[in-house]
Design a protein around this nucleic acid. Sequence first.
DNA 1: CGTTCGGTTGAAAGTCTTCAAGGAGGGTGG
DNA 2: CCACCCTCCTTGAAGACTTTCAACCGAACG
Lengths: 236, 236
Amino acid sequence: MVNHACADCAVRDSALCAALNDDELDRLNRVGRRQKLAKGQTLQFAGDDSLVFANVVEGVLKLSTSTADGREQIVGLLYPADFLGRLFAVRVDYDCTALTDADICVFPRKGFEAALNDFQKLERSLLERTMAELDRTRQWMLLLGRKSAEEKVASFLLNIVDRLKPEGCAGRAADGPPTYVLPLTRGQIADVLGLTIETVSRQMTRLKTAGVIALPSTREVTILKPLALEARAEAA
Amino acid sequence: MVNHACADCAVRDSALCAALNDDELDRLNRVGRRQKLAKGQTLQFAGDDSLVFANVVEGVLKLSTSTADGREQIVGLLYPADFLGRLFAVRVDYDCTALTDADICVFPRKGFEAALNDFQKLERSLLERTMAELDRTRQWMLLLGRKSAEEKVASFLLNIVDRLKPEGCAGRAADGPPTYVLPLTRGQIADVLGLTIETVSRQMTRLKTAGVIALPSTREVTILKPLALEARAEAA
DNA sequence: CGTTCGGTTGAAAGTCTTCAAGGAGGGTGG
DNA sequence: CCACCCTCCTTGAAGACTTTCAACCGAACG
């Protein structure tokens, strides 16, 4: 029988755990525990010992590195069902911070490694996820290295559309244009895109003025013309 | 006994194969074959079916993506002992091209997957490599998003120092300042750093003028002041 | 000996950043 | 309940850095 902590888990079938059957999951679950994170709370700092292994259950986290003089770059965003943890390294070299209130399922290193040894399916699934993450990261490099500010912002919004559920979609039909609640501030979006906060703000208003998006509030975006947005994500 | 193709392999102990003992390696080797690549030869194009799985034995390859209008970004460099291949995906989404004449050890998909299933150590090793590559890639994102042209070029040169052997080091003692043969043209370096060819050229001459490096020829770099180079890789 | 490819250098242009000021929303305390 | 404060966002103007456009150089090659 599935441990009740897992039975009603929102990501039981999409996180790493999906690789395990109920019995196996039960064993893994014995070493894991749920943890709540408050918005802004940092789970690990660059240079810390690599001790945290976790599935994101709810919320959004960021992975970030920075230069000695404080310039920051967000190098990864973790959404529900994503995995966090650096195996095979003594230290981690990026911070991990909750962008929203979050709920994660944490495993201690020893226990997680043991599960990895015992369940090859788990390791296979982790390899699969890691390779997919590497692909996404490389795509992101194209954005950082070669795209203009407008293309970057448009690409970012498309990414949000891809990874986030529209607001109030619980049982509602897809009637009007979808609205998303951004888990990031303008400054954090700037850190994702390698821009300044002012440039992000300007590009957002440009897209709004062009009628491509609407901004009901600073944290909400409505996608009015998805195709126009895609065009601007890779303009010639 | 080790198949003679592996026995004298330059990367027998540093590539993925290092995870296997001689017997296991022998089995893997039965499905693999050596392949020579000419400089400039493309091994796979973005959009191709994912069929190539290989260890780099000698030479340097690049992984690159580009926008629809032709702007290119190099998203990975493969040095000897590095692994190439995208499991768990039908298509690959970046090109792979030889920057120098190269020598690789190719496995067909089926055979490689079978070996992965049979030898858990092999899968473990691949997971380890993939995670390390993800770390390197994320560090590179900091460079792309937040560093100035000078910092980018200096960082790139330090990377070369890290991953490449100095010229003519076979039996020679480390006496004078080390010289490296760049496997990339200025244009390719620009594609790595998210700059233009002119900017790369200008920064190189700046470093030369400052006495930090010397440029015996366009493809060679001598590191005169490693510490000064490090300082410029992350200036305040 | 001319052509081509890669590299360098200069000048002008453009994009993004920096600096600066003002505004809107949310929470706290009087 | 309202004033105040803090954080986040927006907007303008000036400036800096990188790109773009262009010309030239040098080595390799046919």
